[in-house]
Design a binder for these strands. Structure first.
Length: 681
DNA sequence: TGGGGATTT
């Protein structure tokens, strides 16, 4: 290791600052009755004013600091005030785990069984009944509901929580709810005059809840809707900045950690870093310098094996300080108890989709400065259980120059799926009023992709094929592959692979210093054509093993092969869902050409025609549709192989443009794969 | 030779 031991004279100097303070709710003592706890929440004082405002206005913006209790209390206030009427109250959340745990909490507060008065609905998991009035839902779930019920008529109030996160799906809902509210108002007016007796369409109330100062923007979008503020309940977090800019944030983090470790009272430390590589490097440095002063180092990032993730929750032994090195997974998704000190490098990795008019576009993954909102969120992690400290490895001036909030996803993501969903609702992304309009190039790229996939015709009209594609809960290109498998009679195999690809957890675990062992453990699954059929082999091996083995041996088998069992369990749920959808659109999911790989690869080529490249005379791969030279990702079974043509699941630009999820196909498969393939170029 | 984080009738 090249990092020198931290020495006194090279201490990093932090300026003391009385500025931004932020922290989180005090967890209530378990002996207090739930009703008492409810009354003590900061929002309880505002109850009557809140109900009055919401009753009088169609849209309300609620700016509530963390710990105010808005997410659990507002729906109950609405219910108690009779504002739900005959309909339901929906509360959207960007993350499924939030939706399920909030529902459980609110059910407990009301003393009812989960799934009766209070329920939740997320993918694969719904606990609701005929008497459910408050329903916590993932934002994606409500988008899907919109496709079958364009007026969302079951709901009388829709609460969009965590709106400041600006997920693609929340923005999609914000835009649609605005026009739904108008339509439902018109329907109610007409009904009131006795001209309509059919449906029971009731007016819709919208409540947008946000934790940052974006409230004005939400208000402007909804005709200057009233903004209500609710204070949070927080422990103070003292913020420190560096006196000068740091050039090496990993080295700065190391020095700062030891300054805390040597000089400061007990308390665990959480260090925010951009990615796995920095985390592993800092882990080595800390361990090397911590010989005499015990430190328990644990790591936290999404692709870390679950068994190692669990370590961050273990109790810290006496006389030891726990130090957690994490990506921004610890910013919102995971709460770690016992943190008193936060070290913030001010960096994170950000994925951004670059649409190219020449091809399918690609994702970039670059280390960037965080936003002010993110910096405040990180600092808040030090004050959950008591007063805390946050050391920012940048100057106060640098903080002041950070962007207030990150760009909404609608300006960073591929819009292919959203355009298809809007087409199903009879709308166009070009004309729908969004809070932040998408980049026109992204819209054009999405339209082009959908046209190439056959979802839209030459006049941008939704085709029957496109409607079928939209009914599958996977990305349009994967839906196209499933539909193509019907022609090639291999839907069974294709659905197996598509389920694995669309699982959110990575199948192949990676531990940097065990790469050789990993490669040999997995070699038996390897298929010569590449990653798609290798995934199929792996799934088949898992299922064969799972038929006879119990839970702990299954876990052991996955560990031996460095595979993530969560990927299999999630994929099997997705597969069930896809099989049901196949039945609904008239596909036979049992169709199989046993052990014949050609039909499978032919089906994939239909959906991946935009994600393909041809071998050039100089040995490089160049996009079939597009001008970029791409390299096969080192993690692929085809890395370093030269084959005439490849198809791939995605392109990621880091240092080079890498193709991931790669298979080799004959060039002839591209002939007539879709009507859109340019001749001979 | 390399992987921020969510999510889908």
């Amino acid at each position: 290791m090249s990092l020198p031991a931290p020495r006194k004279k090279r201490r990093i100097h932090f300026d003391d600052d009385e500025g931004p303070k932020r922290s989180h709710s005090i967890s209530s003592s378990p002996s207090t009755p739930l009703q008492k706890q409810r009354e003590q929440l900061p929002i309880a004082k505002e109850r009557d004013a809140l109900i009055r405002e919401i009753r009088e206005n169609d849209v309300t913006i609620l700016l509530g600091e963390t710990g105010s209790g808005k997410t659990t209390q507002v729906p109950q206030y609405l219910l108690e005030a009779g504002l739900a009427g005959k309909g339901m109250i929906a509360v959207t959340q960007p993350r499924r785990v939030a939706a399920t745990s909030l529902a459980a909490r609110v059910a407990a507060e009301r003393g009812v069984k989960l799934g009766s008065l209070v329920g939740y609905s997320v993918r694969f998991d719904e606990i609701c009944g005929a008497d459910t009035k408050i329903k916590y839902v993932s934002d994606g779930m409500l988008v899907r509901e919109l496709l079958s019920d364009p007026l969302l008529s079951r709901y009388s109030v829709i609460v969009l929580d965590e709106a400041h996160e600006r997920t693609l799906r929340t923005d999609f809902l914000i835009a649609n709810l605005k026009s739904i509210q108008v339509k439902r108002k018109q329907a109610t007016d007409v009904k009131g005059k006795g001209k309509c007796t059919s449906s029971a369409v009731n007016p819709l109330k919208i409540i947008v809840m946000s934790a940052t100062l974006d409230a004005e923007k939400f208000s402007r979008f909804y005709h200057n809707a009233r903004i209500l503020y609710v204070k949070g309940r927080q422990h103070p977090v003292k913020i420190f900045y560096t006196a000068v800019n740091q050039t090496d944030y990993v080295d700065s983090a190391l020095r700062t950690f030891f300054q805390i470790h040597l000089d400061q009272p007990p308390g665990d430390v959480l260090i925010f870093l951009p990615g796995q590589e920095d985390i592993e490097s800092l882990e080595k440095s800390i361990k090397m310098h911590a010989k005499r002063l015990p430190v328990l180092v644990s790591l936290m990032y999404a692709s870390l094996p679950p068994s190692q993730q669990a370590r961050i929750f273990s109790a810290t032994p006496p006389q030891t300080r726990k130090c957690i090195l994490a990506t921004n997974i610890a910013e919102t998704s995971i709460t770690i108890p016992g943190i008193k000190y936060v070290i913030d490098t001010g960096k994170s990795k950000e994925k951004r989709y670059l649409s190219k008019d020449t091809g399918g576009g690609f994702d970039t993954l670059l280390t960037r400065d965080i936003t002010k909102a993110s910096a405040m969120q990180r600092a808040g992690r030090a004050g959950r259980e008591g007063p805390g400290f946050c050391f920012r490895l940048y100057t106060e001036e640098a903080f002041n120059n950070l962007a207030a909030a990150s760009e909404p996803e609608i300006r960073r993501c591929s819009l292919t799926q959203s355009v298809l969903e809007l087409k199903c609702l009879g709308q166009d992304l070009e004309t729908v009023e969004f809070m932040d309009p998408p980049d026109i190039n992204s819209v054009v790229a999405a339209l082009k992709t959908l046209w190439i996939l056959g979802a839209l015709d030459d006049s941008k009209t939704l085709t029957p094929l496109g409607r079928q594609m939209a009914s599958f809960p996977v990305e349009p290109y994967l839906a196209r592959i499933i539909l193509a498998s019907s022609t090639h009679e291999c839907t069974s195999e294709v659905i197996d692979i598509v389920s694995m690809i669309s699982s959110s957890s990575k199948l192949f675990l990676d531990i940097s210093d065990q790469r050789d062992a990993i490669a040999s453990a997995r070699s038996k699954f390897r298929h010569p054509s590449g990653d798609h059929l290798t995934i199929l082999n792996t799934l088949r091996a898992y299922q064969e093993m799972a038929e006879t083995e119990n839970k702990s041996s299954r876990k052991e088998w996955c560990k031996q092969h460095f595979l993530n069992e969560r990927t299999f369990t999630e994929a099997l749920k997705i597969r069930d869902q896809l099989r049901v959808t196949c039945g609904r659109v008239g596909l036979d999911w049992r169709a199989s050409k046993k052990d014949s790989e050609d039909p499978v690869l032919r089906s994939f080529t239909v959906g991946l025609v935009q994600q393909s490249a041809l071998l050039q005379p100089d040995g490089s791969y160049k996009q079939l549709m597009g001008r970029s030279v791409v390299k096969i990702h080192p993690g692929s079974t085809l890395a370093d192989k030269k084959v005439p043509a490849i198809i791939f699941d995605e392109l990621v630009y880091t240092n080079q443009i890498y193709a991931r999820g790669v298979s080799s196909v004959p060039r002839s498969y591209f002939n007539g794969a879709t009507p859109a393939i340019p001749n001979g170029s």
